[in-house]
Design a protein around this nucleic acid. Structure first.
Lengths: 216, 216
DNA sequence: TAACTTGTTGACCCCGTGGTCAGTTAGTTG
DNA sequence: CAACTAACTGACCACGGGGTCAACAAGTTA
């Protein structure tokens, strides 16, 4: 990308430059924040990895905090969209399976994002508090309501929707949060495609059976 | 404790002083590390909260890293002991229930410790790698073996022991890691005793049923 | 009580950090 | 081309961080 800037004869439009750099910085920042946390990540290290001068990062993002929040917002969006997929007219057999598979897939494909989110929650959500209380809570309650309707229709046993959702969240999320550690315990360098599949399948089976959802 | 030191007429033995201060520092450090992470915690802040001069902390723990590792070790011990409780001669109905309840209890009673541990794993276990590869892995494999024997005895369905254990870990651990968020989502300031009970009970039920363990 | 060990502390240092700024170059627009 | 705006960057700074150290106080022991 440095080459692109210096070598290419074709001039780049300002808008493009801006877009590209924002994207580059956000992407690099995501990696670093995931690996080292907010306090463990330095602007310099992001700059280095992005091959940009530190000042340039600060040009696009006034402060480290602004950059971090930006990264967080992107992540929260993904979370919410995934959850919206479930509705009361679907049967939990398909809806839950689909959600669980999706969530494990996110853990695999967006492991960095997932881990930043988890770390944020772990430390009391200092930057996300408000968003949680509004956006996430809304979606949370909607989803609990969906569960309740399933229970009313006797499509699943009467169990606490809140705690069930926590259980699904945490066990799927674990494939991002503790994926590295899991691989160590299983004697691998990293989890393989098949591990995610097995995991998603196991969670699905246990949850469906455990909730008394008829498996056809 | 300051009063104790200055005011009391009875002299304190060196050994006692050492023991007390070590304990105090470790305890305060645990709180801070849990809330702010390794990099977000300053020695000064620990000193302040412990009402000791910074130099005094450094007298007992040569470096911040040493202190942090010490805290981690204590936590790992708890984890391992809990898991040892499960053996192949027990029926999974009781053994799993007992372990799950215990683990949720740990999440409640030692939430700080649990969160530090989680945070460490989340960021790739930079300080715990070795211990994981040896101690935790040993216990992990033992426990998986226990599961396998249960399966052989047809006390539970044939499912991946590794992934089942991950699922149990993550869903119980969540009551420490995400306890704060959960309370926000449920509109409380913090989780209550009953929430932990409900959670533990739900996880137990779902896991037992989901694994095809006969409930008597 | 004298000699010694252990505990305690403020002053101090070095370095990395987030962030500013002024000056320069590169694109844009009339 | 001229005037303007957006992009870029090195030099710089203030501050707080971990950690050292030398001197002193408090316990211990013969």
């Amino acid at each position: 990308m440095k080459e692109n800037k210096k070598v290419s004869t074709t001039r780049r439009k300002s808008a493009d430059i801006r877009k590209d750099n924002l994207q580059l910085i956000l992407s690099v920042a995501e990696q670093r924040f995931a690996e080292y946390g907010y306090n463990g990540t330095t602007i310099s290290s992001i700059a280095e990895q992005a091959q940009l001068p530190k000042s340039n990062i600060l040009y696009y993002f006034k402060t480290k905090e602004v950059l971090y929040k930006e990264v967080l917002i992107q992540i929260l969006k993904i979370w919410l969209v995934d959850m919206e997929g479930m509705s009361a007219d679907q049967h939990p057999r398909e809806a839950l399976r689909h959600y669980i598979i999706l969530k494990v897939k996110q853990s695999k494909d967006h492991s960095n994002a997932s881990r930043i989110f988890a770390s944020e929650l772990l430390h009391g959500a200092p930057f996300l508090r408000e968003k949680l209380q509004t956006d996430l809570k809304d979606q949370f309650m909607k989803t609990c309501q969906v569960f309740r309707e399933w229970i009313a229709k006797q499509w699943m046993n009467p169990i606490s929707p809140e705690h069930l959702l926590f259980m699904i969240w945490s066990s799927t999320q674990a494939y991002a949060d503790y994926g590295l550690q899991s691989s160590i315990l299983m004697g691998k360098t990293e989890l393989e495609e098949s591990d995610f599949e097995t995991g998603a399948e196991l969670i699905t089976q246990v949850v469906l059976k455990g909730c008394g959802v008829k498996l056809l």
